[in-house]
Nucleic acid binder design. Sequence first.
DNA 1: ACCTACTTACTTAGTAGTAAGTAGGTTGAT
DNA 2: ATCAACCTACTTACTACTAAGTAAGTAGGT
Lengths: 212, 212
Amino acid sequence: MSARPDTREQILDAAETLLQQRGFNAFSYQNISQPLGIRNAAVHYHFPTKGNLGAALIDRYRRRFHAWVAAHRRRGSDPATLLNGYFAIPLNYLRHDNCVCPLGVLEAEFNAIPDDMRVATRALDAEIREFLAGVLRDGREQGQFQFAGLPEAKALVVVAALQGALQIARVAGPTAFRDTLRQLKCDLGMDVRSATAAEGTGPGAHPSRETN
Amino acid sequence: MSARPDTREQILDAAETLLQQRGFNAFSYQNISQPLGIRNAAVHYHFPTKGNLGAALIDRYRRRFHAWVAAHRRRGSDPATLLNGYFAIPLNYLRHDNCVCPLGVLEAEFNAIPDDMRVATRALDAEIREFLAGVLRDGREQGQFQFAGLPEAKALVVVAALQGALQIARVAGPTAFRDTLRQLKCDLGMDVRSATAAEGTGPGAHPSRETN
DNA sequence: ACCTACTTACTTAGTAGTAAGTAGGTTGAT
DNA sequence: ATCAACCTACTTACTACTAAGTAAGTAGGT
């Protein structure tokens, strides 16, 4: 009966889906343990407190993102490829039963999560925006994107809009997100083909469904 | 001891702050009753279930927004004034201890709120985006704004970015929101003065602090 | 003999929600 | 004008449940 010995990772997978579907304060240890066929105390064994679980989850998001960026750097991807690869992350969330961006959830509940989670959240946000600002700067220099203003400010608009659009897609349907993405590309002077569907799972590789 | 007979409205005020500060699933009846010096059951008297409270709160947001739009219509405000007035709403939230957009919170927790709240949330989102798309369309026709694409898509980008930026401001500080707003205006070909500070409280008039 | 990865059984502290009682004001019939 | 009936806006006291977290025990591998 030891088909999946990696209980710890399965717990994180379950927590990830629950976080992006319901929010941190709207799921319990039982929501994790029951589907996995284990006991609440088993979850506590791996993650003594819920805050530890949350912080470990955010750290995993960060490691995945770092690895994804590193892989692209090795491949020497150009700015347009990097940006389309980044767009694939929320597109994956969207396909995954309208999951929202983890950063959005954590920031919305920021005053109701433990301190170690806040620190990790801040770090993830900074890393993503720093990456994106670099991509936008390089892309503009190389003539792949057109926009006015600082790359940091444009990166802010892009991440904020993607994050917000995933949330809006919850009430307005997935086309709301796709329309937002198309407009963002248009505002960057990019080629507006729907595309980027087969861009690979990227760092936002969501556990359930396709991992079966 | 009847300084404030309007308990019902005070409950909604408290719930509003709690929603935008902590999220719907991260506050309890006690968080409302205790500061008001009343009992939990008094809250249940006015709002039998937490879902009723939440739905009533969203309905109040909607009524405030309708009244605000109607007031501007009577005044015959031009698109730029309307848009700057709309921008004043999240700017007020920001000043109010980094409150986030109620729609963002509700959408993030969408799978963890009762059904009547979902219906009301959907309605509020549709009303806001419809209003904004109209403003953007008129403004472009009158030469006040410049942008490519459909007004509906541009409205989506604007509301999504504002919503997301309020959340990001939680972890990155208020300048993150202001930078996002400046970039959005820049992308619309608007005059980029910081301004719009004394735009009045508008429909996002938050209860506590200044109402004292 | 010990470690890892659990389980069973429990505690403590909340949560939303309810039932029944009550103070004070309003209404209506006599 | 007075008294009974009733309504609004609560209170006290409770139920039923769920939450996170802990202590102690155990099976199986090293």
